[in-house]
Design a protein around this nucleic acid. Structure first.
Lengths: 116, 116
DNA sequence: AATAAATACCTCGTTATTTGATGTATTTTA
DNA sequence: TAAAATACATCAAATAACGAGGTATTTATT
């Protein structure tokens, strides 16, 4: 696991990206997906994820619908138009950020060839 | 400039890397160097940098010597042995982190393959 | 059948880093 | 000579993620 400070600012863009990719997902599914895709290196924890989903909904980036699964209720989230725009913005920012960090810290490596 | 959250957790590793590279540097010099190397995209601000240098010194990662330049005093910082070790640790962590973020957010990026 | 583990949501006080504001003082440039 | 750059410093405020705690259902294990 990474120091939590490093993760700051990554939660929102990760959620937006995954929802953009998969159409609709519920909270628990998002956390499982991220854990799976990062080999357990990134955890979207309950205490971070649910408040973030609520905030993003309040900010107009997401909407949700409740679906009954037996006696449980799942909240499926999806992007709004604004959420889609924000996804683009944050991904551009993230890409630029990764490249800048790579340059200043790893200038003698080429660790992120996919971002060229 | 990046959303300030993204920069969290990057300050320490940046300082350690630059000091490792240049032997000894003073605060103002560090901030100028980072600004220069990132085309102004990353600012180590006074309010962040000086407290961080003090903390890292307290933590045994840095030592400093004061040098008189006319009537001014510059504090030249350099890495301790522990600081060198911490540099390695944080660089490894950062590299892993960047690659993980790239994987989860930019996995389908293969635009401009000829420019790599 | 009983129990543990996994699923699925939630809240809220604590924590830690960065920032912005503010300050002092010297040296260089216009 | 005034402005800009150099060079250090402190501290209250902001804020995002976390940990701890909670409720409840479903599935797997013993």
């Amino acid at each position: 696991m990474y120091s939590k400070e490093l993760l700051k600012g990554t939660l929102e863009v990760i959620v937006l990206k995954l929802l953009s990719e998969h159409g609709k997902m519920y909270g628990y599914e998002l956390s499982q997906k991220v854990k799976e895709e990062t080999d357990g290196k990134i955890h979207l924890k309950d205490g971070s994820l649910y408040p973030a989903l609520h905030k993003m909904t309040k900010d107009g980036l997401l909407t949700f619908e409740e679906v009954n699964i037996g006696k449980r209720v799942r909240k499926y989230y999806k992007l709004t138009g604004e959420g889609e725009k924000q996804k683009e913005t944050l991904m551009d920012e993230m890409k630029d950020f990764l490249q800048t960090i790579e340059k200043v810290i790893f200038k003698d490596f080429n660790m992120l060839p996919g971002l060229c």
